[in-house]
């Protein structure tokens, strides 16, 4: 222990607000939410190459032959996602038939990492049409597969939600869900880091779960990325 230790200890001293524990105890006593049947209210339209459309509310799935498999996979993944057990979708998506501009917008939206948000203007800038944020909004509004292509992660520049196909309350719900779910989970015994939702991630014991902010962070303390789900850091 040298003087750096003393100085650091002094800098790090923080006092908690006096009412903190009372507020937390009140939150602990709040009743837990009941079982969720939300995933059952989604309907899929699929072709052989993947999911073509996602609808909410009344309706039925549209799929024949091999496309049924895509629907089953999408439904399972969506249920896991809504329960906070999945941060990415691996079901194939078929976006054929949409325009070139919308295709580029949706491709950009697809790149927004789980739990993060960006603005319409930022997407417009990234696809090389900096003045087209309204057109970007329209392209996202016409997203045939909401949730799977995460247009809910795009908000207005002033921080308000903007339009959402399933309503602003649903957008809030998705963003809150993503805020409470970690993306990168490491296993303390194997020292492997996975994306949440990977088959290996699901097998990590509760007491062995260590969350990381980036793959680089995990590697810096002796973890390696999973070879199945291949977590990667987004380029800055």
């Amino acid at each position: 222990m040298d003087r750096t230790d003393d100085t650091l200890r002094e800098i790090f001293a923080v006092t908690a607000p006096p009412t903190l524990s009372a507020r937390i105890l009140a939150a602990l006593r709040a009743p837990a939410p009941g079982p969720d049947t939300l995933a059952e209210r989604f309907h899929f339209e699929a072709g052989e190459r993947g999911i073509r459309r996602l609808r909410y509310g009344r309706g039925r799935d549209v799929a024949v032959g091999r496309a049924r498999r895509h629907v089953e996979q999408a439904r399972a993944e969506l249920a896991e996602y809504l329960a906070g057990g999945r941060t990415f979708f691996s079901v194939p998506i078929d976006l054929s038939g949409i325009g070139e501009f919308q295709d580029r917008v949706l491709a950009r939206a697809q790149e927004i990492p789980y739990g993060e948000v960006t603005s319409y203007a930022e997407i417009a800038r990234r696809i090389g049409h900096p003045r087209a944020s309204r057109a970007v909004g329209n392209a996202l509004g016409a997203n045939p597969v909401p949730v799977l292509v995460p247009c809910h992660r795009v908000i207005r520049g002033d921080g308000t939600w903007g339009h959402y196909a399933f309503g602003p309350a649903f957008k809030t719900r998705l963003l809150t869900l993503e805020r409470g779910t970690p993306l990168l989970v490491g296993c303390a015994s194997t020292r492997i880091v996975c994306r949440r939702g990977c088959a290996h991630e699901r097998r990590i014991a509760e007491h062995g779960r260590v969350v990381f902010a980036s793959v680089a962070d995990a590697v810096s303390v002796g973890y390696r990325p999973c070879k199945v789900c291949r977590p990667r850091d987004r380029a800055a």
Binding site: G115, E116, R179, T181, P182, L183, L184, E206, H207, R209, V210, V211, F212, A213, S214, D217
Partner: peptide, 28 residues
Amino acid sequence: SYSPRWAVSTWLYRALTNVCIDELRRRR
């Protein structure tokens, strides 16, 4: 699922650091 093999503080700090680290990831 809490096991007495763990110190309580370890258990709580693990949960806390997991939450904080994920918050920092989003905040980048």
